[in-house]
């Protein structure tokens, strides 16, 4: 395994194994089997830079590195994409 990225939406994180030479479209096709949403209804944003990933470019070209966090948004009712939303647990430090 060359690398993995963390694809996040709301309260869910998908760990996706990938290769720096794969394109953003390749990632969407992997996600498609997990979330039952066609790749055309998915939009991926690199969280660190807020850049929307280009389907035809590779991960390396778009500075998506190992362990990177990528936000997933879905198209609502065949129209616009929803806003990026990644939920955070309320108290980040939950020492017991």
């Amino acid at each position: 395994m060359a690398m993995y990225i963390r694809v996040k939406r709301n309260k869910t994180t998908y760990f996706v194994q990938c290769d720096p030479t794969e394109t953003a479209l390749d990632i969407k096709q992997k996600l498609q089997t997990l979330i039952d949403e066609p790749s055309t209804n998915q939009c991926l944003t690199l969280v660190a830079t807020n850049d929307v990933l280009d389907d035809s470019k590779t991960l390396a070209e778009q500075k998506v590195e190992n362990d990177a966090v990528v936000a997933l948004t879905l198209r609502k009712d065949g129209n616009e994409f929803e806003e990026v939303y990644i939920a955070q647990p309320e108290n980040l430090k939950s020492f017991s």
Partner: peptide, 23 residues
């Protein structure tokens, strides 16, 4: 990447992590 080859781990706050079974 197939659904059957992944598992979902759920945290105390109900957050979900979908990872490969192998991992």
């Amino acid at each position: 990447m197939k659904k059957e080859d992944t598992v979902k781990l759920i945290s105390a706050e109900g957050f979900e992590f979908v990872i490969d079974k192998k991992a």
